Amino acid sequence: MTRITVALGARSYPVDIENGLLDRAGAVLAPLARANRLFLVTDVNVAAAQLDRFRAGCAGIEIEAVILPAGESSKSWAQLEALTDRMLDWGVERGDHVVALGGGVIGDLVGFASAIVKRGCNFVQVPTTLLAQVDSSVGGKTAINARAGKNLIGAFHQPAHVLIDPDVLDTLGSRETRAGYAEVVKYGLIDDPDFFDWCEDNAGALLAGDGAARRHAIARSVEAKARIVGEDERETRDRRALLNLGHTFGHALEAETGFSERLLHGEAVAAGMALAFRYSAARGLCAPDDAERVSRHLAAVGLPTSAAEAHVTAAGATLVAHMAHDKKMAGGRLPFLLARGIGQTFVAKDVELEDVAAFLDSERG
C-alpha cells in the first residue's frame, strides 16, 4: 500500500492507495465506526457497480446507504437539504464519519453536508473515478453549485481519511476515464514538466487500464496535490490557486452547457487548459510551440481543446459573463492561471476580461 499524508498539523490525514482496498475497507474503517455503524452516501451508478463489494469489505459493520441520482445536478440545494435531513434522522453525531463512495459530485456534496451538520462532523472519501482519485477527494474543498455558477456555495472541510482503490476504475467508462485524465495532466503543466513528459509517453497505457501506469499517475498526482494543499490550505496565497489551471475557462464552458452531461468537468478542464496556454501564447508569455504541444497531447487522448470541441459556440462576452461570477473574483478583478511554458504556470492578476472575450471571439473566428 502507498500512503501519502496531507500535512495539516493536527488535521493531517492519510491517503491510502492500494489495489483491492475496497475489499478490506472494513479493516480501515472499523475504528471510525461508532457502534459498528456507518452512514454512507453514493449514487445510483456507483451503487450498482461497487456498493455490494464495499459492504462485503465492511463485513460486521452496519452500513446505512443513501443512494442519490448520478450527475452534476445532485450538487444542489435540494439534494443538500434532503441529505442533511437523512443524516440528522439517522442520528449522525459530530464524532461520526460519513462515507462518500463515489466521484467528485458525491465527494463535494457529502463533504459540504458534513461541514454543516451539527457545525461539522467527520467524513471519509472513497473516490471511484479517476478524477476524484487524483484531485477532488484530496484537499478539503466541498461545495454545491448555484444558479450563478459552479461550486459557489461551500466550505473548506478536510476528510479524515481517503481510501483509493485503483481497481474500481475497471468499471469506469472510457469517457469518464479520459475526463479524469485531464486532471492528471494538469499536475505536469503546473510545475512538473518531467511528469508531463511521462504523460505523453504513458497516456495510452494508463487509459487502456495498465495497472502500473494507473498507480503511478494516481500516486504522483496525489503527492503533488498534498504538497500544494499543505503549503496553502485555504488558497490565501497564490500557491493553491495553481490547482485551478484550466478551471476559469472550463467553468465558463460548463456554465454555458448547463452543468450537464453534455460536457463533463474533466473535459471542460482539458479545453480550459488548452485555452489558457493559447491565451498565454497570444499574450507573448508562452512559446506557441508549448501551447500547441499541450493541445496536441490532449487531442491525442480524445479530449476537447477548444470551446467549439466542447460544443460551446457562445460569444466571448457571454463566456466572460459566466467568469464574472467566479469565486476567485477580488476587487472586481479575476486572477487567471496562465503559463510561461510547460511546468511554468503562474497567477496573473492583470488580465482584463474584455481582452479574454476578444481572445475567445478570435478562437471562434
Rank of each mutant, 00 (worst) to 15 (best):
G188F: 05
I144F: 05
C199R: 01
A179K: 01
L8H: 03
Y279Q: 02
E309Y: 04
H311L: 12
G26L: 09
L353K: 03
L29K: 01
G272A: 08
A27H: 14
V222R: 00
P166F: 01
G139Q: 06
Q158L: 11
F123C: 10
F195H: 11
A205I: 04
R178E: 04
R296D: 15
A7K: 13
S306Q: 05
A47N: 13
P335W: 05
Y13A: 07
M273V: 09
H97G: 05
I190Y: 05
R53D: 10
G266Q: 07
D135S: 10
Q344S: 15
G316T: 10
A30G: 03
L130I: 10
R293D: 08
I144M: 08
P14C: 11
A30D: 10
S136T: 09
T236C: 11
E72M: 07
L303P: 00
L298K: 02
F277C: 01
E231V: 08
H216F: 14
H251Q: 04
R214S: 13
I164S: 05
E64F: 13
V126N: 04
E62V: 14
N19K: 12
G71H: 07
E233F: 11
L303R: 00
T177R: 15
T171Q: 12
R364N: 11
F259G: 01
A317P: 02
A276Y: 00
A255T: 02
L253V: 01
A10L: 14
D165E: 09
L32W: 11
R237E: 15
L337V: 15
L163R: 08
V229Y: 01
A317T: 15
R278Y: 04
G104S: 11
A317F: 03
F39N: 00
R215N: 12
D191P: 02
V105W: 07
E200Y: 05
V351D: 03
S174G: 11
G188P: 08
V41M: 06
R227N: 10
E254V: 02
T345I: 13
V138M: 08
A307H: 00
A10H: 13
R333K: 15
D355E: 15
H251S: 05
W77T: 14
C286L: 08
E352D: 14
S136K: 00
H322K: 12
A208W: 07
L22M: 13
L68A: 15
I164C: 09
L303D: 01
A155I: 10
D165N: 06
A179N: 06
